[in-house]
């Protein structure tokens, strides 16, 4: 009887050690409550098996914890991001970097169709542009400032085809922002500044 009891205790200790090692996952997730942590670890493991970036998922969970969100909201956000990351990777191709996939996920979350991400990738390749991280970031910013998705997509595509480089994309975004802050219509400001940027490159889309 005592032997069975001792064996049971040993089994319980061993299994709990193993289970704890697997549920904690990333040590930073220890800040979450246990139920949320288990769900997030499962989502992260699923993403890892699909060869998706996992750091953005952990970041999202940590952001939610720091902003005081409840566990359910954190899990929903991380699950949604996981779906967007998968869609972005599918649109941008398997050779896309983590930053491109993350920026692509943000664009998809803002409403960009997946086909527009694929078109942007093709346009960038034709213009011998290595990465599309900043064009996707600028595209998301345009939508966030009130430019309709279709207009923002056409603008960024035309800029990418014209071979605009990162410093020029940054200047374009800054100019549009300043125009909007001065009261300009978002679409009008973006389209006007885009024409000027393309002229500056000396190439037309």
């Amino acid at each position: 009887m005592r032997a069975a009891w001792l064996t049971s205790c040993a089994c319980c200790i061993a299994l709990s050690v193993t289970a704890r090692a697997q549920t904690i996952g990333d040590a930073r997730l220890a800040r979450l409550d246990s139920a949320t942590r288990v769900a997030i670890v499962a989502l992260v493991d699923s993403a890892r098996r699909q060869r998706l970036p996992t750091e953005p998922l952990v970041d999202k969970a940590l952001e939610g914890e720091k902003k005081g969100a409840d566990g359910g909201r954190i899990v929903t956000a991380v699950r949604g991001l996981s779906v967007d990351l998968r869609a972005a990777r599918g649109s941008l191709g398997s050779g896309a970097s983590t930053d491109e996939i993350t920026a692509g996920a943000n664009a998809i979350h803002a409403g960009f169709p997946m086909r527009d991400l694929a078109r942007l990738r093709v346009a960038a390749q034709h213009a011998r542009r290595a990465r599309v991280t900043l064009p996707l970031t600028v595209a998301t910013d345009l939508v966030a400032r009130g430019v309709p998705v279709a207009v923002a997509s056409d603008i960024v595509l035309s800029l990418a085809r014209a071979g605009l480089r990162d410093p020029d994309f940054t200047m374009f975004q800054r100019n549009v922002r300043l125009d909007i802050e001065h009261g300009a219509d978002a679409s009008a400001a973006a389209q006007t500044r885009a024409r000027g940027a393309v002229l500056h490159t000396g190439r037309t889309s």
Binding site: T76, D99, N106, V138, A144, T170
Partner: peptide, 25 residues
């Protein structure tokens, strides 16, 4: 002054930053 994100998961806004190999954006 930074590009915005439509980051409405937790009710507070975020900004995007792209730190390039040559120039910080």
């Amino acid at each position: 002054a930074a590009p915005r994100l439509l980051d409405d998961d937790f009710g507070t806004p975020n900004s995007a930053l792209v730190v390039g190999g040559e120039v910080a954006q």
